[in-house]
Design a binder for these strands. Structure first.
Length: 849
RNA sequence: GCGGAAGUGGUGAAAUGGCAAACACACCAGCCUUAGGAGCUGGCGCCGAAAGGCUUGCGGGUUCAAGUCCCGCCUUCCGCACCA
């Protein structure tokens, strides 16, 4: 070995050798059985979409996860570190259109390609648990879960307004609409269409999803806040205003007229401030409100005006700024009656009322709401004060929106606090049947139907006689037909495959039709990490005992862009699986880490900007170790990282220095005995001290703070010192046993960051077995201890000098040393020392006058 | 508007309240060489010839001592945005 060793570090020679070894020895990374007696550690990075090419964001993400996994291996944990493919989705269909390649072939080809890239990077995955969501082995369990949810009433079908991306030719979930545009096409506006859709009742879990966030203290606060806002729980009251009766004879077509025995027409509004209801001076309806359609049906002039409001909303949405729309409204000429006091207020239609929040109707209280105030001023609606602030006398200034006040102009409720009044008014509404306390959410049920081919078929059958029927369990999976012609035209491609569509009813056996929509791909990623624990199971999604052993995930790592999509869906799925009795954990992941973006020249890498750096290119030129290590060294992992190729070259040069250092002295180390004595002479002692200080620092940074950049910097410092002592290492002044100790530990510490080089040098040092199976070094505090330390001496807080004292000196010794210092004496000359502050081991400060 | 994160050399960055700029990149000077995207030595915040002084977005404050803690502001990035 030594003879063949190249003088120069050549990753192109080292890396393929280990790639081959690792590929031929899959057990190398495989998780050990749960009975191994070691504590478990489950770390995963978010699975990628198999586009065919890794990008630098992946490299960073996986370098972090792999460093962590390797570190945990060396600490003796039973580590599960799997990888999979989020393999369904539209790009496969687009590729099919463009290159006439079947989606399945295209996807599997991309997976193979990216897997090769990962192996080239030396990422230590347990490929035995690999999951590809586009394979029937996997997606059959999506169907299975769908049916279990259907049985539990968590799945329903309804016709509703849905988000439609014309580019994708499919429906999008609310979470997939960003600024009114498609999350995949940020310049394509989302339309609203009326479609029959399958929904999952995620709102059933809204409270638990929200409350659970408080317990997720291993998650970034930012993500928790984003989820909290997304769920948007709001506690308030729903109240019915009565529609005023209109005289018989006006062509009201019964609308609003009180017919004998029929309840009066009501307009239900949602408010969080029912205590201000005596200040309501109008009722505002969203233009889409069903009552508006009834009004406009008999009033062409009104219809024209409402259409204009709708148009304004549309334009604002197109401009991507619904929030900035100027408030416009039109009076309907109708009136509503406040159920509490019988007050008669006009009904308006306004463009700032959201149809899909609350009831799509509000009571307008200009005295105590900013927006209502603005609106009322514009249209000269009365402003009535019904809350008197408690705090200041300046209560005349409206709108007053705080709840810190008492009711006025509110009849019998005058003098009550806002909180008391709310409670009381809710009780009355409930008792009299015109309202109730109500909690509203911004979160909507999850619309999962997609009019696409490359996804999980929804396992339902429509029978002309029996109606909708679930596919029986023993007929799962409903397999995607392989042969299909993908065309540009909209609609579900599966509906054009008669062999797929035509089936028989599981109930009556008659001819029936299959559902031809497929599932949102976020379903695939909602539970994939459970499948990793039992990826080959063909009779269940996974064995509960296996999932129970590994869950919750100890560390989940990915981009913050999934803060509300994937991360809320997968929390939901976990809770559903728990309620199905499959698992015991409430949350999927104990800790979540969101790494920063990889940018170049201050901008996000993108093809259009032409600033994309290819991982293959980096690996080709500098090797996988240098590429990975740079990704960890250039910035702390939570910050954005500016990719600078010179930096990669720098890391590569560093690895070259390590290579030369270790190979130069490896023979000495190989033939050396174990280091037994802690007491060494001069340079040897100094180097051992640096070594143990480095181990301490890097262990702390790794386990405590996740600052991989300072870990790498610490190793660089150690190497710099070793290099500076090259002569002593060569001459034998530093004993071989110490050389061995130094180099061994250096290689061990490099293992999470530069796996190829470490494996190679480990072998070069004559060590048996994999470096990953070697224990992580332990810092010996005795060896790490300095015998002399420098103490800064300040005069009035300004640095005056630095004195050297023996480590562990007490305050008296340090003070004496400081006062004896020449520079200190010169500065303090002629002044009296008022006070001396000594912080042993830290600093001295003289207060002089 | 609301919420979050961040502002430190030419650049990426480092610093349990205790010597600001570790570790790198770039640059400069020199050395070496079978000329490489190699290696080695030294320099490198700002002002100053030096002694020395100044320096962590701005302004206050707490403290013997502040990049770090507190208050007020400015800027940038990210998320949300008429949610009644």
């Amino acid at each position: 070995m030594a003879e063949e060793t190249e003088l120069r570090y050549n990753p192109a020679a080292i890396e393929p050798k280990w790639q081959d070894r690792w590929a031929a020895d899959p057990s190398f990374y495989a998780a050990e059985p749960a009975t191994c007696g070691k504590p478990k550690y489950y770390v995963i990075e978010m699975l990628p979409y198999p586009s065919g090419q890794l990008h630098m964001g992946h490299v960073r993400n996986y370098s972090i996860g792999d460093a962590l996994a390797r570190h945990m291996w060396m600490l003796g944990y039973n580590v599960l570190h799997p990888m999979g493919w989020d393999a369904f989705g539209l790009p496969a269909e687009n590729a099919a259109l463009k290159n006439n390649t079947p989606p399945r072939e295209w996807t599997l080809g991309n997976i193979a390609q990216m897997k090769t890239q990962m192996q080239r990077l030396g990422l230590g995955y347990d490929w035995a648990t690999e999951v590809a969501t586009c394979l029937p082995d996997y997606y059959r369990w999506n169907q299975w879960f769908f049916l279990r949810m259907y049985e539990k009433g968590l799945v329903y079908r309804k016709k509703s307004k849905v988000n439609w991306c014309p580019e994708c030719a499919t429906v999008l979930a609310n979470e997939q609409v960003v600024n009114g545009c498609c999350w995949r096409h940020d310049d394509t506006l989302v339309d609203q269409r009326d479609l029959e859709q399958w929904f999952l009742r995620i709102t059933e879990y809204a409270d638990e999803l929200l409350d659970g966030l408080d317990k997720l203290d291993g998650w970034p606060e930012k993500v928790r806040i984003m989820q909290r806002n997304w769920i948007g729980r709001s506690e308030g009251t729903e109240v019915d205003f009565f529609l005023e009766e209109i005289n018989q004879g006006s062509e009201g077509q019964g609308l609003g007229t009180r017919e004998e025995g029929l309840e009066r027409q009501r307009i239900r509004v949602f408010t969080t401030r029912v205590d201000t209801i005596f200040g309501a001076t109008s009722v505002q309806l969203a233009p889409q409100h069903e009552l508006v359609a009834k009004f406009t049906a008999v009033d062409a002039a009104l219809k024209a005006q409402v259409d204009e409001l709708l148009d304004q909303q549309k334009k604002a949405r197109e401009a991507g700024d619904l929030g900035a729309i100027e408030k416009h409204g039109v009076p309907t000429g109708r009136f509503a009656i406040n159920p509490y006091n019988g007050a008669r207020v006009p009904i308006w239609v306004a463009n700032y009322i959201l149809a899909d929040y609350g009831t799509g109707a509000i009571m307008s209280v200009p005295g105590h709401d900013e927006r209502d105030f603005e609106f009322a001023n514009k249209y000269n609606l009365p402003v009535v004060q019904v809350i008197q602030p408690v705090q200041n006398e300046d209560g005349a200034k409206l709108p007053f929106c705080s709840e810190d006040g008492v009711l006025v102009n509110s009849g019998e409720y005058d003098g009550m606090s806002c909180a008391d009044a709310e409670k009381k008014l809710q009780e009355i509404a409930t008792a009299k049947g015109f309202g109730e306390a109500k909690t509203t959410y911004r979160l909507k049920d999850w619309g999962i139907s997609r009019q696409r081919y490359w996804g999980t078929p929804i396992p339902m059958i429509n029978c002309p006689s029996c109606g909708l029927r679930a596919v029986p369990n023993n007929q799962l999976p409903v397999v995607l037909p392989g042969k299909i012609e993908i065309t540009q035209q909209g609609g579900s491609p599966l509906s054009r495959v008669p062999e797929f569509v035509n089936t028989t009813c599981p109930n009556c056996g008659q001819d029936a039709l299959r559902e031809t929509d497929t599932m949102d791909t976020f379903i695939d990623s909602s539970w994939y990490f459970y499948r990793y624990t039992d990826a080959k199971n063909s009779s269940a999604p996974f064995e509960p005992a296996k999932a129970q052993y590994w869950f919750p995930i100890d560390q989940y790592i990915g981009g913050v862009e999934h803060a509300i999509l994937h991360l809320i869906y997968s929390r939901f799925w976990t809770k559903v699986m728990r309620d199905l009795g499959l698992i015991k954990n409430d949350e999927p992941a104990r800790r979540l880490f969101t790494q920063g973006m990889v940018i170049k020249d201050g901008a996000k890498m993108s093809k259009s900007k032409g600033n994309v750096v290819s991982p293959d290119d980096m690996v080709g030129r500098y090797g996988a170790d240098a590429t990975r290590m740079y990704a960890l060294f250039a910035a702390p992992p939570d910050r954005d990282l500016d990719w600078q190729e010179d930096g990669v070259a720098g890391v590569s040069r560093f690895l070259g220095r390590v290579w030369r250092l270790v190979t130069k002295h490896s023979a000495t180390a190989r033939n050396a005995p174990m280091l037994l004595s802690k007491t060494q002479e001069g340079e040897a002692q100094k180097l051992l001290r640096k070594l143990h200080q480095t181990i301490a620092k890097i262990t702390l940074d790794f386990e405590g703070r996740w600052h991989f950049n300072t870990c790498v910097a610490a190793i660089m410092e150690l190497v710099n010192e070793l290099q500076a002592a090259d002569a002593q290492l060569t001459s034998g002044e530093v004993p071989p046993a110490v050389v061995r100790e130094l180099l061994r530990n250096l290689v061990l510490m490099l293992a999470p960051f530069a796996p190829f080089l470490s494996a190679e040098l480990w072998e070069e040092l004559g060590e048996q077995g994999a470096v990953l199976r070697a224990p992580w070094p332990k810092s010996d505090p005795e060896l790490a201890k300095d015998d002399e330390i420098e103490i800064p001496v300040q005069i009035n807080g300004k640095l005056a000098s630095v004195v050297r004292v023996p480590a562990g000196s007490d305050a008296k010794v340090i003070e004496a040393a400081a006062l004896a210092d020449e520079k200190v004496q010169a500065r303090a000359a002629g002044k009296s020392i008022a006070k001396v502050i000594v912080v042993p081991g830290r600093a001295v400060n003289l207060v002089v006058k």
